[in-house]
Each structure stands twice: as structure tokens, then as C-alpha cells.
Amino acid sequence: MSRGTVLVVGGGIGGLSTAVALREAGYDVDVVELHEDLHSSVYGVGIIQPVNALRALDAIGCAEACLGVGYATTAWGQVHDVAGNLVREMPGARIAGSELPPMNGLARPQLHRILTERARGAGVTIEYAKTFTELVNGPGGVDVTYTDGTSGRVDFVVGADGVYSKVRPYVLAEDLTPVYIGQSAFRLNIPRIPEIDRIILQHGPTGMAGFVPIGPEMAYFFFNTVWEEGQRLEQNRMDHVLRELLAPFGGLAGRVRDEFVTDPSAIVFRPEEWLIAPAPWHRDRIVLIGDAVHAVTPHLGQGAAQAIEDGVVLAECLAAGSSPQEAFERYTERRYERCKLVVESSVAIGEWEIDPTGKEDFDHAGLTQHVLETMVQPF
């Protein structure tokens, strides 16, 4: 017997994970995704899955598949200088009693495929090229009007539609907008050089270069650099600009510059933004998850991890049998401080990367380790 009906707005990582968790908890779940298909909703190249993300994925039956197509590491990473010399090890953290690795990297399309297949296999309905035009929220349910002209009533709506969420105004009185940190990131898939067996970071005068293994034969390269807000960069100039920014680097970054930064169409360029919404994250029968309430810059690889955890916790709270109001309050209580730590720590690392002047005492690797050790605690 169904516990009720849920509409999840957004078919990204958080939305699909939440849909699976709610379906496993006994709810009938429909996902609507504005993009026209699975592939068009996938942004970026690769993704970092810290051990807490793997634990949450394991809870919805997806960790094994992710590990099967990704690259599991024996440690979190290393810090190198601009010339490529090892400066510091970053061991990462493990979950007591678990065999999950400190980190798994995989291609984003692979993750979306795994989550989509798991959702459909669990009985979730996914509709593409569709979203809502109006939500009428109330204590007994939510009346939804859709872009295809249909309408209906559901017991709950989950807003998993990202940092520019259209569901968020139905929950929060404050008009929130994400904060641009002052950095943007270049990303590019490259062959996995043998040395890339964990996250490798190189800090130089023009930004932070990084490498993440995402499969036996593939890695992705990223470069965080200062970028004026709103400044356009034409796609056909991506490779030229990136090579110029990487000019001071030796080591892995120098090799990538010389061998692999050749095709501008293969480079993804995105601004880095953050947001943390005040509690509560719900109103009546509508609740928010993921980037809609805690958008994270990529400096700790925790954005997707936190969204997946949101879905698992939300399903647990609703399945506990308390009233929807109590369930949503408990969900926010369990998630708020944890997500806030990730958001604020990521921003602090980004600000240090932008300008380390006067921040000689800032311990980038130490803060990373602190967050990772915090994240392996129960969520």
C-alpha cells in the first residue's frame, strides 16, 4: 500500500536520488525534468564521490554500480606546487566498519545513467521536457499545473531544481540569489595518466589546477581561476585562454597544457556560486533539497554528496510515521549544520585560492581533512 504521492521537480543527481529513496520508503514518485532527455540535463565532465556520498548511494542501491564504472582511490589526494613537486598528502577519511574507499571518481553521464536506471527499476516515473507552471500549497496536499496543460494533486512536492530553483519561492519568503565567489572553473576530460590515482592539486599564481581519476582510462582536469563576473568567454577561445593561464605550471598541469588542451569544444567553463538558505526548508507540503537550499562551490567535491544525503534523510524522516510537518522539521534539523559546514568551508578554500595574501596561516589541506572526517560521521 502506498504511503502517498510525491512530485520531485528536477531530474538531476539530487532529484533522482531522492526519488529512489522515497520510492523505497513506499511512496509513489513522479519526477519532472525541464530538459528534453537524460543527457541534456547532465552538466560538467566528471564527478567526485567522497566516501559519505558512496554511503548514501549504497543506501539507495547505487554504490556498487558507481564503483564498477568509476575509479576508487586508496587515499583522498595530494597537494603539489606549481612545478609539480609533492608538498603534502591528504589521506581523506574512511567510515568505521565499511570497505568503501575514501573517494570514487566517475563520469557524470555514467552517474546519471545509474541513477536513472535505478529509479525506473524501482518504479519511479520520469517525464522529460516537463515541469510545473503553478503550485497551490496547502496542509492537505499540493495542486500542480504542468507545462503540458495537465494538472493534478500530490501529497508532497520536493524542489530539487537547482540553485536557480523555481520551487524555492513557494517555500522561502526571502528572494535568494546565489553568490558568485569570484572564480570560474575550466573542466576537461583527459586520458588517465598513471600518476592520477587520487585527487592531485597544483596551486599556482593564476589559479588551482586539479586532476581526478574517473575511470581506469579516464580522468578529468579542472582549473579554478579568478574571473570577472559576467565576463564572456567564447567557446572557440577556451583552449587558447586556458593554455595562457597554465603557462606558469610544470608537472601534470604543464603536461596537460601541452598535450591535451587542444579542442575548445571539449572544455566546460562554469562560474562558481554558493548559497545557504535559512531554515526551515519547507512550507506546508513543499520541501527543498540540494542546490535549491545549499549550493556548494566545488572545492571539496561535496555538492552532489550533500544532495544525495538530503534525499536519504528526507525519506527516512517521512517514513518514520510522524506528521509531514514534524518530518520536514526533523529533516532540516539533521541537514542544516552539516550542509552549512560544507558550504562555508568550500567558500573559505575558494577565497584563499583567489588571494592567499595575508592568509599564511590558512591550512587548505587541514580544512579539507577536517570536513572529510566530519562527513564520515552518521548523517
Rank of each mutant, 00 (worst) to 15 (best):
G301A: 06
D37F: 06
A53D: 03
P169Q: 09
D258V: 07
E64Y: 05
R192M: 08
G12K: 00
D161Y: 04
D161S: 07
A83I: 11
G152L: 11
A307V: 04
T116D: 13
A292M: 12
I354F: 05
E229D: 13
Y164A: 09
V179D: 06
P298Q: 05
G290V: 11
Y170E: 15
A279V: 11
L86F: 00
M103L: 15
A96M: 00
D361K: 14
L34P: 02
V45T: 03
E99V: 13
L318A: 02
Y146V: 12
C62S: 13
R285Q: 09
F260E: 14
N189L: 01
Y146S: 11
I289F: 06
R255L: 15
Y336R: 14
D284A: 08
E234P: 05
R168C: 14
P194N: 05
V347H: 02
I349V: 15
I276A: 11
Y146D: 12
L314P: 03
N236S: 11
A304H: 02
D148L: 13
Q325P: 05
V171Q: 08
E316D: 07
S151Q: 14
H203N: 13
R338V: 02
V212C: 04
V82C: 15
E195M: 02
I276H: 15
K166S: 15
V296A: 05
T133M: 01
G311C: 05
A292I: 11
S323N: 09
G44S: 06
S40E: 11
Y180N: 10
G350F: 03
E259Y: 04
W281G: 15
A279W: 02
E337G: 09
S322P: 08
F269G: 12
Q78C: 03
M238N: 15
L176R: 12
R243V: 12
D263F: 04
V226S: 13
G14Y: 11
V29D: 05
L176F: 12
V287L: 14
T150Y: 13
T262S: 13
G70L: 07
T206D: 13
D143C: 08
I267V: 14
V171S: 12
P178G: 02
L252S: 14
D363M: 11
N85F: 06
G140V: 03
E259W: 01
V32W: 07
F260V: 01
G12D: 09
C317A: 12
H294F: 07
E174K: 10
P324F: 05
P50Y: 00
S40V: 09
A307F: 04
T147A: 10
C317K: 12
I214L: 08
V31P: 05
Q49K: 00
P109F: 07
E351V: 02
I200W: 03
D161N: 06
F269T: 12
E259I: 07
D155M: 06
L275M: 15
V6S: 08
F186G: 10
G182L: 09
R237D: 14
L100E: 01
M238S: 15
S151G: 13
S151N: 13
H282N: 14
A365V: 12
H299E: 00
G358L: 02
R120E: 15
E24I: 03
V136G: 06
G207L: 07
E309F: 08
L300I: 05
R335I: 14
T131M: 05
L7G: 05
G162P: 02
T74P: 00
I126C: 10
G44D: 08
E89F: 04
V144I: 10
Q49N: 09
I196E: 01
Y164M: 03
I48R: 10
D284V: 01
L106S: 07
T374L: 09
L201T: 10
